[in-house]
Amino acid sequence: MRRNPFEEIEDMFDRMGRQFDSPGMRSFESIPIDMQDHGDEYEVTADLPGYDTENIDLTFSDGRLRLEASREDVEEEADEETYIHRERRQSVSRSLRVPEAVDEDGIAASYNNGTLTITLPKEEADEDEGHRIDIN
Rank of each mutant, 00 (worst) to 15 (best):
P23F: 13
E75G: 09
T59K: 07
F28I: 01
L116F: 03
V44M: 09
D11K: 13
V98G: 00
N55V: 08
G50T: 00
H131F: 15
R2K: 13
S30M: 11
E7T: 10
F13G: 03
T119Q: 01
D79Y: 02
Y42F: 14
A125P: 05
E75T: 11
R2I: 08
P32W: 13
S27Y: 01
R2Q: 12
D40G: 12
R3N: 08
L65C: 01
N4G: 03
D105H: 00
Q90W: 12
D62P: 02
Y42V: 04
D37V: 05
P99L: 04
S30H: 06
S93Y: 11
L67E: 07
S70P: 01
R132G: 15
R71C: 05
I9P: 07
S22H: 14
F20I: 13
D105E: 05
M12Y: 08
E68R: 14
R64K: 13
G17W: 02
E29D: 15
P5R: 06
I107Q: 01
G50R: 02
E123A: 10
E77M: 07
M35A: 07
N113Q: 10
R3Q: 14
N4Y: 05
N112M: 11
P49L: 01
R97N: 05
R89L: 14
R86M: 11
G63S: 04
L48D: 02
E100Q: 04
Q36D: 10
E8F: 03
D14C: 04
R3S: 05
D57V: 09
R94K: 15
E80I: 14
M35S: 01
